[in-house]
Nucleic acid binder design. Structure first.
Length: 124
DNA sequence: ATAATGACATGTT
DNA sequence: TAACATGCCATTA
């Protein structure tokens, strides 16, 4: 279990109900700016212990191919939390995006440089 | 050790 | 708007 993996899991678990984040955002919050793809396989492996359905790609779309966790299931789970999903699996990510406050980010023990990036990119 | 793979992201065409 | 190319990096083969 790598530290990277632990961080990802820790972060995904923090996502509030009714909110979503992008893979890239989670990755950045874990201190790996370009590890979006890795977030995917971690969720695939640990889908039973994290709210994987609150993580979508930055285009606001669901494009997963997993057998246990198919797109249809994800849509249902999201709608259950009050998130609107169109028929073509499109979501208004900016409307529902989780924007963590500085306090939360500080708890992740990130370098200031990353915290600034996150704030700049996702909360301004 | 090297190469291929993938629940992605971003910039160019 | 959509398709294509390139960058990423942990895991697998």
């Amino acid at each position: 279990m790598s530290p990277f993996k632990q961080k990802i899991i820790q972060i995904v678990k923090m996502i509030p109900k009714g909110n979503v984040v992008s893979y890239g955002q989670v990755s950045l919050m874990a201190g790996v700016p370009r590890g979006a793809r890795q977030v995917g396989w971690i969720l695939h492996q640990h889908g039973d212990q994290v709210p994987w359905w609150r993580v979508i790609n930055n285009a606001g779309r669901i494009s997963i191919k997993s057998v246990e966790h198919h797109a249809n299931l994800q849509r249902d789970l999201l709608e259950k939390e009050g998130i609107k999903v169109t028929k073509n699996l499109n979501i208004d990510i900016e409307k529902y995006r989780w924007k963590p406050d500085e306090k939360t980010l500080n708890n992740l023990a990130l370098d200031d440089e990353y915290i600034f990036k996150i704030l700049e990119k996702y909360t301004f």
